[in-house]
Design a protein around this nucleic acid. Sequence first.
DNA 1: TTGAAAGCGCTACCAA
DNA 2: TTGGTAGCGCTTTCAA
Lengths: 345, 345
Amino acid sequence: MVQIPKTPPPASPAPTRSAPTSADVARLAGVSRATVSYVLNDAGAVRISEPTRRRVREAARELGYVPHAAARSLRAGHSRMVLMPAPAFPVGPLYSQFISDLQGALGLLDYTVVQYGTAGLQDDEAARAWAELRPVAVLVPGSGLGPRGVEVLRRSGARAVVTLGPESVEGAHALLMDHDVVGHSAGAHLFDRGRRRIGVVVPREPGLEAFSAPRLAGVREALRGTDATVTELPLAHDEGAAARLAARWRDLGLDAVFTYNDEYAMLLMRALQDEGIRIPEDTAVIGADNLMLGRLLRPRLSTVHLELPSGRELAELVDRAVRDPAAAPEAHKVLGASVVRRESS
Amino acid sequence: MVQIPKTPPPASPAPTRSAPTSADVARLAGVSRATVSYVLNDAGAVRISEPTRRRVREAARELGYVPHAAARSLRAGHSRMVLMPAPAFPVGPLYSQFISDLQGALGLLDYTVVQYGTAGLQDDEAARAWAELRPVAVLVPGSGLGPRGVEVLRRSGARAVVTLGPESVEGAHALLMDHDVVGHSAGAHLFDRGRRRIGVVVPREPGLEAFSAPRLAGVREALRGTDATVTELPLAHDEGAAARLAARWRDLGLDAVFTYNDEYAMLLMRALQDEGIRIPEDTAVIGADNLMLGRLLRPRLSTVHLELPSGRELAELVDRAVRDPAAAPEAHKVLGASVVRRESS
DNA sequence: TTGAAAGCGCTACCAA
DNA sequence: TTGGTAGCGCTTTCAA
């Protein structure tokens, strides 16, 4: 890093006097703290004269008063914070978009979404860390939360715990996103296209098993009882690995491959084409996630389009659960999948 | 959404009795709240007998006691929360990775990173919302924070405010990530390769101006005083737009193009190739961000590799600033750029 | 219409 | 070695 000298060392901004409190505002406005609270929260029950209101607001503005969320929620006994663990590794545009939507939708319902950076904590440990913040609801993607974690969160006052993952957890609401439907769609599609010796790419990258295993299982399921075979193809997301796999492609004798997602499809297609294998004549290829890049490949990539729940739907589920925390946990199957056939299959 | 009936409506998990407090633990263990606090925080100054410790821990475990972060930090007068706004739109793998690293590094220094979902709040409004949480430090990417926002945060007790963006803000530390170096590298490279009529893709997507404008400016800068020309090419990230741009490519008479990043490069390359334009013979192409996909394109994509600061470096800057909040804000230029030449230029 | 004061859960000082 | 207690900043009930 290159230090850039600031021209005039700016007067250090006021020797870190601590933050103004409502008492400071009260003092400056010449009223009590209660009055300050009434004014700033637009308390309906109490009538405060207009001149007083003005004085209070003025004082607050002058001091740069910002209420202290911790104190407030301590007093109130609850908050409107919805907590999610921050993803530990880069996630695709699909999921990012989903999070954004969800944040927006929950924001409309006056919740505040907070992504908590849980670096390396495991299960119950993580649940405890989250519970310390006393969120009103917790949303957990993946399968990192067990029944004990759910229990910890509920006992600490979380009125809704929602998992987004392959299976439901005792005591928690569940948005079942079983990725086997993705594999199922892909497998059925390839079978319909007359393919019988079907490869399935399984990423070697850690953290992806949660998705890859069900997708593989879905393919198997779709082909159960047919004469088609399924071959598992472990593959790291780098060129070398793809080239090595492509080199033994003819020996594998596959006539189709489901590549886990569009990015692995691009990787593998490139390697196969460099190897002289024709797509789709020799090998049909289908990806998943319906990313933009699939349309840019040649041949254009067939893919499985994922239908995630809308942010609004999930936000409403959370809100319902918060309002009636005693209700039995709901479990919803929310992952839809549809094949987008292009040229590669 | 499809409702899946749970087989036995599970006994609603204990009529939401509220969370156990340290007083509950004390009562159960037959000690005072002070003792509970000492034991659970391993207070060094005080010696508690082993049997007592055991009783306290046992009681805490039995009740599922989790300390209340708000109460704790209210009492302590500070927290170790580092707050960042959650990105409002999907960001690339580069930035996601950076955030992850940063979270890890700050975690090692015992900070907790929280991404705050600031849906639609603007500037000062957002700053105030963040300030309510009384974070010890605030990290703000982009240019959404003005001097007033910084002031609000500092007055509310934030000991470090760090901006990650094109320019430094009065009162805040700055990690200057001026993307003009990216454009500069690209422009210089294309010039060195003998190109003189240079196009620069400018994404139409909102939210990207913060990056695209400096990248464009960098190209201009690199070519200032030469005989080369720079042509701005607005482009939306979809096939149709790319095809339309490609259709008038020959009229544009460009012999090189810097595509903003690798994804737009892929989009445009595909459209150009479909139009029969040879790369790099007719038009040289260079992207940026050095994504995996560039290596998979044919011809292989030249790109500008971005050197972001490591998470550890930034974490240490934050830590320094927190420890000495009175110190004059530092400004560091942290964005490095180097050309990775492949086949497309 | 406004103020006094209790108390949310926690920690740390001082006393026993 | 342990307990009592004040007080962090806020809201809200009760009194004036």
